[in-house]
Amino acid sequence: MWVGQALARRARWRWAEIVFWLAAFAALFLPAGRHLILNEIAILALFALSLDLILGYAGIISLGHAAFLGLGAYAAGLLAKHVTDDPTVGLALATVAAASLGFATSFLVLRGSDLTRLMVTLGVAMLLGELANALPDLTGGADGLQGVTMGPLLGLFEFDLYGRVAYAYSLTTLFVLMLVARAVVYSPFGLSLMAIRRNRLRASALGVPVHKRLIAVYTLAAAFAGAAGALLAQTTAFVSLDFFEFHRSADVLLVLIIGGAGWLYGGILGAVLYEALQDALAAVTPEYWQFWIGLFLVAFVMLGRERLTGGMRGLLARFGR
């Protein structure tokens, strides 16, 4: 029956996807030297994927997504410092901790205007930053959490100086969570999110329980961001108050927007482009690259970001069929 086939086609793996993942894993065998930056990209991509779930799919603007990144990072860092240095346990704990915070704060973003949501998300991140600052005995305060050391991954692979194991770890986590995100996006749940983003009232008139779905996706996205925070803390062996800062939330927004919100690979593409952009700008003007990022952002919005990323997506889609 063609209806069944047409539905199945939505979730089919595209060639471009398969090629991308093969290439990403093949990069593990590159000669040492690029893996630290690849690791950074993978973590940023995961963080942006997390934001995509709420912004791109559910339409919630957040200026405080760093709250979950920071919480995950501190959870993983503290666990490593005080309890166990097994990275996967830290990753699991960070994910659960961030998901709990996501669930608790999801009720705050259900109602109100975009402005209230911006303020509340921003406020939650600032609140956690202040809290971490106020508990120096636990968090190290402004000095950051020192002395985080990680044991071998799965008891087998020691983290090396060149970041190869780190990259393998982050990339695998990204891949697994991408599989989850993929399932979610193409599921009935994902479809109802797309409806909510487009028109809440209309979605509820089709029987979609809007609040329930938003709570679920916000919690899920928080879990993803917590995982990204854990990866960042574990692979750099450092956590600081900076993790909660506004610029983290702003950067990830920027990353997602460059790559295009509302499709699964927007975060990954954005992370790659962002790192490349930052790299190129830092080579030209090491101190003032933020100026050019800002200019880029202004120009990007003025020229119509939908048009720009839409064109790119169209190109990729045609290539990927």
């Binding site: 603007i61 975009d114 927007i257 990022i293 800002g294 202004v298 919005v301 003025m302």
Partner: peptide, 14 residues
């Protein structure tokens, strides 16, 4: 609002 947020963040960075 998302465009306005991005645009003005860009200005802040600059």
């Amino acid at each position: 609002h998302l465009d306005q947020v991005l645009f003005s963040i860009g200005l802040v960075f600059m």
